Amino acid sequence: MDLEIFDNTKDGVPAEHIDLVKNILNYAGKYIELADDTEMSVTFVNNDEIQEINKKYRGVNRATDVISFAIEDGDDDTDFPVIMDDEMAQEIPENIGDIFVSIDKVAEQAEFLDHSYERELGFLVVHGFLHLNGYDHMKPEDEAVMFPLQRKILDDYGLTR
């Protein structure tokens, strides 16, 4: 997976946490059988920045833990169709979107839930990653698919509670 990591935090994210995110997202990508050239990004932020993002895009004026922005949400863009042959289409990597993670919320929630910072960080990036890949939990039947998959990826990777 072509993964871009951006650190917009005040104090910086330690290299081992960036490596954890890269490794678990690559693991999750293989787990759900994404193409190797799939692209996405993760941006680490503090609570103040994610609150602004949440307010602007979701109309909710509070900090949250993770926000996912899927680029290709399945809508057919008929205003500007791109016409290409199958060979050309296969050469263009699929960009699935962007995830924003509040490292402040990672720390708060890890302490509240009494598990490691690494487990919470892994949970949030996998959760956001699954949203980018079309998984959701708004309906009970969707939750029954997404949550067990998320738990299985984390457990198999070794980030258990």
Rank of each mutant, 00 (worst) to 15 (best):
D2L: 05
D2K: 05
L3G: 02
E4F: 10
E4H: 11
I5M: 00
D7Q: 11
N8A: 09
T9P: 03
K10M: 12
D11F: 00
D11L: 12
V13Y: 01
D19Q: 15
V21K: 00
K22R: 15
I24L: 02
N26P: 00
Y27T: 01
A28D: 04
G29V: 07
Y31Q: 03
L34S: 03
D37G: 04
E39L: 07
M40N: 04
S41W: 02
V42K: 01
F44L: 12
N46V: 05
N47A: 13
I53Y: 15
N54R: 08
K56V: 12
K56G: 11
V60Y: 13
V60K: 14
N61P: 00
A63V: 11
A63G: 15
T64F: 08
T64G: 08
D65Q: 04
D65G: 08
V66Y: 01
I67K: 03
S68C: 11
S68W: 12
S68N: 09
A70Y: 02
D73G: 15
D75C: 00
D79Y: 09
P81A: 09
V82P: 02
V82N: 04
V82E: 09
V82S: 11
M84H: 11
E87T: 13
E87W: 01
A89L: 15
A89V: 11
A89P: 05
Q90M: 12
E91P: 00
I92K: 12
P93E: 09
P93Q: 05
E94L: 06
D98F: 04
I99P: 00
I99H: 01
I99Y: 03
I103C: 08
K105F: 01
A107S: 06
Q109L: 13
A110E: 09
A110I: 12
F112G: 08
H115K: 06
S116F: 02
E118I: 05
R119C: 03
E120G: 08
G122L: 02
F123W: 04
F123H: 07
V125L: 06
H127L: 14
N133P: 07
N133F: 14
G134R: 04
G134M: 03
D136M: 09
H137N: 14
P140Y: 11
P140R: 13
P140L: 14
E141Q: 14
V145F: 05
M146N: 01
F147D: 13
P148C: 10
L149W: 05
L149P: 03
Q150H: 07
K152G: 06
K152M: 08
K152Y: 05
L154W: 00
D155F: 10
Y157A: 02
R161G: 14
R161P: 14
R161S: 15
